[in-house]
Design a protein around this nucleic acid. Structure first.
Lengths: 204, 204
DNA sequence: CGAAAATACGAGCGATCGATCGTGTTATCG
DNA sequence: CGATAACACGATCGATCGCTCGTATTTTCG
């Protein structure tokens, strides 16, 4: 049942998602209470539930908003043409750098990027984001290694995404030189991994 | 205040840790209730709290038990001699294979291996395990790359451990052929990463 | 044996959680 | 304007959480 939103309502939804992202970054999903979200967003619990039916829906909406932002910030990095022709380190940099910037700007995004075997509730909310990113990476790998069978492509994309996700926490937590060093390590790991990804490398 | 444990008590403690490990594997730390632990261990909540002052202490004890088991299962893999002389893929295999076997045998171990920026409660309980493993990996890397400065050694160890931890979830969740394929990918990723770890590789 | 210590139980405490609801306020529109 | 719908509030609900406590049973040991 759709509701005619007023401008004020749209603003409030944004406030809720902002508060949720901040609290997820500090406490994670389980330890973030809906009352705390409402308080940080400057509203009552009742108002919060005017816009979302339950906690999971908030996580889903936040996941969707992050996905949209990521898509916008990442548009250029995922075109197939450069995927096939660029040197591998350059290609990895083009994908990783915006991703790092995004996560630094949005700490707490990683909470919505839960790895695997999580409680179904959060897993369901974060799967769209996770799947979308993995899918884009798979497309990139497929474009670069045209001979690679689909199962191998998907597995390589999953592994690459897991590696990035695993190191994003420490990267976001670090600062300055140490962060730069960790990003360099992440790129080295990805290049080292992908360089040996079966099939021929068009730009090796 | 130490307590003279009877044989029955030691057995009960083992039951509690077994139940906790199983529940952590299914639900994670937050969603595992102490009452559920007691129920699965076949005792009342009161009995559970006869052996542990609180939930965090249970996680710590479990973490310690896992660490001991891991040490036993891993003794041979971490000697310095082979670290310097073995071919890198062989060395990686010797470390990774027992680790995979251990995690397959103890699903839920990964719950105690929380990455970073987790709620302090769980983080404190799992840090010993995490630090011990990272320290052993660091010693291995230091033995293999004698010229590498300490900060670089520690960073590389941390990155390697994060990569292993990130892929352990999918590996444990998979079975048969797919699991073997994922393990192979993990090894490739580690070898690719470590092969380029500055300094000279004694056995390159 | 008998006393002390360890083990066992489970109803229930206080706190907190996600979510509801009755009531009042503000915006939209004919 | 008046009417309707969207927005806002916060006390409070029922459920669940980590944990306690009074009491009963079993083991240890002199």
């Amino acid at each position: 049942m759709p509701v005619r939103r007023q401008a004020r309502g749209e603003r409030r939804i944004g406030d809720i998602l902002d508060a949720t992202l901040a609290l997820f970054a500090e406490l994670g999903y389980d330890r973030t209470s809906t009352n705390a979200i409402a308080a940080r967003a400057g509203m009552s619990p009742g108002s919060l539930y005017q816009y979302f039916p339950n906690k999971e829906a908030i996580a889903e909406a936040l996941s969707q908003r992050l996905l949209d932002q990521l898509r916008a910030a990442h548009a250029a990095a995922f075109d197939q043409a450069s995927a096939a022709s660029l040197p591998l380190p350059e290609l990895v940099s083009r994908v990783v750098d915006p991703l790092v910037a995004f996560n630094v700007a949005n700490p707490g995004a990683k909470t919505l990027f839960g790895t695997a075997a999580m409680p179904a509730a959060l897993s369901a909310g974060s799967r769209p984001l996770h799947d979308a990113v993995t899918g884009r990476v798979a497309a990139l790998i497929r474009a670069r290694f045209p001979g690679l069978p689909d199962p191998d492509v998907n597995r390589a994309a999953m592994v690459a995404v897991q590696i990035v996700a695993a190191l994003m926490g420490p990267i976001v937590a670090a600062e300055g030189r140490e962060r730069a060093a960790l990003v360099a390590e992440l790129k080295r790991a990805l290049v080292g991994y992908l360089a040996g990804s079966g099939g021929s490398d068009p730009a090796a």
